[in-house]
């Protein structure tokens, strides 16, 4: 059977797991193309108006896959980490798609709920494997292999790579245009690793001569530790992931500046951005800017912000020796 995987939302994080699982069970996987204008337009037209841009784009990818796949794989990610949740829009995703996309797309829905324990989370795979007609032993074997593929992928991300390089074959190595420093990019995977939505920010920054560091490069233990400064547990997985990796970048001095990409109307970003900015203001004071993304297709406003930010980094760098509030050359690398 041909199983379509939309190149949207958390595909860039979990593709190796999903793809290997279906391949191991003998199915073919078709991916939708990288987001383009048609996918955006289709998604925006189909989806309810008050959803965020990434969810609208997901709709567009489903529409793209409709006549190319027998089943379209839609993960219902309820919880990806014990005692934590992710954005409620992921929970209602299959229903949203069924109700909004005309022509009744045939969906293969995975319920992933690791709220009790990670092991429980994978029960959903057994269910869809059975649904696809495989014996339970075969499904378990496929899942084990898929999890191994995913572990290898995660290890490469933690080792400093990123989905753009690993999945899209993009060259983002430092030094395309010299090596001026490191910029930390904070944002949900579906913004950072979608070249259309992010207006190709990663390539632009690399071309300006910056090395990039992503939340996916930060060790989970480090994220847990940096987030432990807060009196309450952060129970939104992605909020914690982004905030924690941003804080880790600040604490360890991994980046000369941080750019936060946020999609308009994101509830999780609204607190994550605020907390990160406050912490930076209080203890670190490195250049940090927030760029809000929405349906604009004009690059001018985006490029202006990016350029101004890089100018600011370079300008501060030249004056770093008498600027650092820490008394040491924080901005000189």
């Amino acid at each position: 059977m041909k199983i379509g995987i939309p190149r949207a939302l958390l595909w860039s994080i979990y593709l190796p797991l999903w793809k290997a699982f279906f391949n191991e069970l003998g199915h073919e996987v078709v991916l939708s193309p990288p987001t383009n204008k048609k996918i955006l337009n289709d998604g925006v037209t189909a989806c309810v108006d008050d959803a965020c841009l990434p969810v609208k784009i997901m709709h567009g990818h489903v529409i793209d896959l409709m006549d190319r796949a027998d089943l379209i794989f839609i993960p219902r990610l309820i919880s990806i980490c014990p005692r934590e949740y992710i954005c409620p829009k992921f929970i209602g995703l299959p229903e949203m798609i069924r109700n909004s996309v005309a022509g009744g797309p045939k969906l293969l829905v995975l319920d992933f709920n690791a709220h009790k324990s990670i092991r429980h989370g994978y029960d959903g795979f057994i269910a869809i494997g059975r649904q696809l007609g495989a014996r339970e032993s075969a499904v378990r074997r496929a899942l084990a292999r898929a999890m191994k593929a995913q572990d290898e992928y995660t290890a490469r991300l933690l080792g400093g790579s990123n989905p753009l390089m690993l999945l899209e074959g993009m060259a983002l190595h430092a030094g395309i245009g010299g090596n001026k420093g490191t910029i930390g990019l904070i944002g949900h995977p579906y913004l950072l690793y979608d070249r259309f939505v992010s207006m190709d920010a990663c390539r632009k920054l690399a071309q300006m001569g910056y090395r990039l560091i992503f939340p996916e490069n930060i060790l989970p233990e480090q994220i847990e530790r940096t987030c432990s400064i807060y009196p309450k547990k952060l129970f939104w997985s992605y909020g914690k992931h982004l905030l924690g990796s941003g804080l880790a970048m600040l604490e360890k001095g991994m980046a000369d500046g941080i750019i936060v990409l946020s999609s308009f109307g994101c509830g999780i970003d609204s607190f994550m951005v605020e907390l990160l900015q406050r912490q930076n203001q209080r203890d670190f004071r490195i250049p940090l800017t927030v760029i809000t993304l929405d349906e604009h297709s004009g690059n001018a406003g985006f490029d202006t912000r990016l350029e101004a930010f890089v100018d600011m980094l370079e300008w501060r760098d030249h004056n770093g020796h008498y600027f650092s509030p820490h008394g040491e050359g924080l901005y000189i690398c």
Partner: peptide, 21 residues
């Protein structure tokens, strides 16, 4: 069509923000 704030410290731009959407 846009508004911005620019913070200057010690003779360089140290921070800025522009209106969002």
């Amino acid at each position: 069509q846009d508004s911005k704030i620019i913070l200057l410290r010690n003779g360089v731009v140290s921070d800025f923000a522009m209106n969002t959407v």
